[in-house]
Simulated assay, not measured.
Amino acid sequence: MELETLLQSALTDENAGWNMGSFGAIAEFHHVAGDPMPAPPGALTQMTMRGGVRIDRLDGVKPVAWEMLSPKTHRWSHGISLCLPREEAAMAGRRVLTELGPDDGAIRPEDRAAILFDMGLGQHQVDFCIRTADPELLDVLRAQAERSLFDQGNPAMGAILKAHPARVALTPIGRVEVYQKIGGPDTGGKSPEGPHTHVLPKLLRAGRTHSANTPIPEGWVPCGNLHPENPVIDRMGADKTPNRAAHDRFQALLSQWGSDAYVAAKALFDNALEAATGPEGVAGPGSRLERVGLRNAIRQARRFDQDNPVIDAWATAFDKGTEPDEDDDPQSKGH
């Protein structure tokens, strides 16, 4: 499948999710069940009253399809990362609050006169911003410009959390905008359903572009992620009846854009399952990525064929316990 065709189709799929950001600062766009499903307002663009996403660049973008183990053995996550070479992925990397002027590139025309501020999070592939026309918030932000939001006694962060301005994640390939409130005291301590953002200082300090659990090739940086419909997890993160069609659709994308080693590890098990052959005499996978592939293949087969002694034998041999996470990244546990 052509990448542009996939992305345009996914923008009209209410079960797909999107995000742009880095390890510790991310903006997500998801459709909320019951909300009107609008037609895209332009090429590779989608928005609702809660937020929006736009892809501005595909030239040079490398799609990387992946699956991730879940601590819950009946689940897994998957996605397609839209990557650029590290040098091309670089944004401004500002480390202080900086006024950028009117947001001429805003998705909604009515937002283009509002003022954009880079929060100064110093991330490689994203300038994480807020946008506002609120005079009181503008006064606070301008008074604290060229300071870190994390300086002791800086009132800007408190003012932002109180005013709930739009958040805008700018990357070399496009943007995600979030119009809903910031998760916190005003939202009962939870992120609102649908589009939302996370800024996690603990993860920001790691200085990574992405989770170590996401198998991005060396020298490449994910600038955005598409999460096609997950076959076993619904949009609210709850278990759902396994959807074989959704699973098969993603497996085709994984074969096209996934790691050869990962796909081969899954094929080893799939071929054995088709031949009703147990794991006797099979050497274990040689790398962590291959182990994840084999274990996910076993878990996926079990969800779609629960009473199969061949699957049980392979699980006993190769899917004992839980694979330790390489990092503590709640952003990587999505769709």
Rank of each mutant, 00 (worst) to 15 (best):
E87S: 15
T277I: 10
N243Q: 07
G237K: 12
R50C: 07
S9P: 03
R299W: 02
S81E: 11
N213L: 14
E28W: 05
V168A: 02
K162C: 00
A143W: 10
T73Q: 14
R167F: 15
N213A: 15
A276T: 12
S287N: 09
K333L: 14
A10Y: 04
Q125C: 06
A283F: 01
W66L: 01
A39N: 13
Q8F: 00
D327V: 05
L121K: 02
R235V: 09
R295Y: 00
I160W: 01
Q125G: 06
P330M: 11
M119V: 03
P279T: 03
H124S: 10
T48E: 09
P242I: 07
E2P: 14
A159C: 13
V61P: 08
A106S: 13
L226W: 04
F117P: 04
V61K: 05
K190F: 15
H31N: 10
D186M: 04
G79V: 03
N296V: 04
N225I: 03
D127L: 06
D111Q: 15
R303Q: 11
N296R: 02
L253R: 13
F150G: 03
P41L: 12
L137Q: 06
A39M: 13
S81Q: 07
M157Q: 04
E136D: 10
R95H: 10
A245E: 12
N154H: 06
I233W: 01
R288F: 00
A283V: 02
V96G: 09
R295D: 03
T48N: 07
P185K: 09
S77I: 03
E146I: 05
A25F: 01
R235F: 01
H124R: 14
T214A: 05
H227S: 04
P228E: 14
L44R: 09
L100D: 08
R54E: 11
G122I: 13
A276E: 12
P38Q: 12
N213W: 08
